[in-house]
Write a protein that binds this DNA or RNA. Structure first.
Length: 313
DNA sequence: CTCCAGGACACTT
DNA sequence: AAGTGTCATGGA
């Protein structure tokens, strides 16, 4: 049994009490309300976010940090604490859209996680045309079947978790076997194997796509070269896995708020590639282009919860 | 039995 | 190049 490294991190300056973490869609409010802890894997390590008192986040992890400062730096980066949420929306947004501004206030502390690129790549390939519940189930199955199994002791009780599978592992999987994890969809299974093979072979170098000097469009084209990845999924990978906070994914929900909140003409028309790029251009005139995707995610969660009354978890 | 769920793609104009 | 129909699958 491994021991858990426990520490408390100062997260002063971040409204983390009202945070919604996405990709893995974590809401501290949700867990706090049910008196549950947030369990998340990062690589082979388990992280537990236990409590928040004032500005102190108490976490436990299986990862061994040689110095406490390293731990703080790691968590801060993962939670994108360095991003000042007050700068996400452009100056004057509150005056142009007072109603929206008021509605999104409880969501202004939302942080986008800097997650592992490969994990995000596969996760969003599973998201095509399915509901959140099934999406999350797929990821859970993938980890259980192809990830590494770990058991640690938490408060005297054994706790088992699975890491997200490595590219090589998924690349070697058979479609017939993998489809059991992809909602029985064989095409999706093949696409995932193909993407994993590209990453494993080095043909698709995810790390290189993080480079801010590489134009966003160039990075997107490289992702879209993979069968099963279109503009929307590529933008999600860029935003959540490659830390490109300017990437603005447009799905059915985003289209709805683009039309309703921002009166963008064409948002309700069919989402062709041309229209997709048009809508991105339109919203970039409203939001801060450098953080369009980050801000968009706040709008996204607010729309789903406050307007559509959907549960994201 | 329909319709939907955080799209992608092949196939016509 | 741009628009339109098809695909795939479990769950509500």
């Amino acid at each position: 049994m491994k021991d858990l490294y426990t520490t408390t991190i100062d997260i002063y300056g971040t409204d983390i009490e009202h945070s919604l973490f996405s990709g893995q869609s974590f809401s501290w409010d949700y867990y706090k309300g049910k008196k549950r802890k947030y369990f998340g894997t990062i690589g082979d390590d388990l992280f537990i976010f236990e409590s928040i008192e004032n500005t102190q986040l108490t976490t436990r992890t299986t990862r061994k940090f040689f110095q406490a400062e390293d731990y703080v730096e790691f968590i801060n980066h993962y939670l994108s604490i360095d991003i000042d949420n007050n700068l996400l929306f452009p100056e004057g947004f509150n005056r142009c859209y007072p109603d929206i501004w008021k509605l999104i206030q409880p969501y202004m502390g939302t942080k986008i996680l800097r997650q592992d690129p490969f994990e995000v790549l596969i996760t969003f390939m599973c998201a095509q045309g399915l509901g959140m519940k099934i999406i999350r189930r797929q990821i859970s199955y993938l980890a259980k079947k192809y990830g590494k199994r770990f058991t640690v002791e938490i408060d005297g009780e054994p706790f088992t978790y699975f890491s997200f599978p490595a590219p090589e592992t998924l690349a070697d999987a058979s479609p017939e076997s993998l489809r059991l994890c992809t909602n029985n969809n064989c095409i999706r299974a093949k696409n995932i194997i193909g993407a994993a093979s590209s990453v494993a072979s080095g043909q698709l170098d995810l790390e290189s796509l993080k480079d801010p000097d590489m134009p966003l469009e160039t990075a997107r084209e490289q992702l879209c070269a993979q069968p099963g990845i279109g503009y929307k999924i590529a933008d999600c990978i860029l935003l959540f896995g490659l830390h490109r906070f300017s990437a603005f994914p447009i799905d059915t929900h985003v289209r709805q708020y683009l039309a309703t909140w921002f009166s963008i003409d064409g948002a309700l028309q069919s989402l062709t590639q041309k229209n997709y790029l048009f809508l991105q251009d339109q919203i970039s005139r409203v939001l801060n282009p450098d953080f369009a995707g980050f801000a968009g995610h706040i709008l996204f969660h607010c729309w789903r919860k406050e307007v559509k009354h959907l549960n994201s978890y």
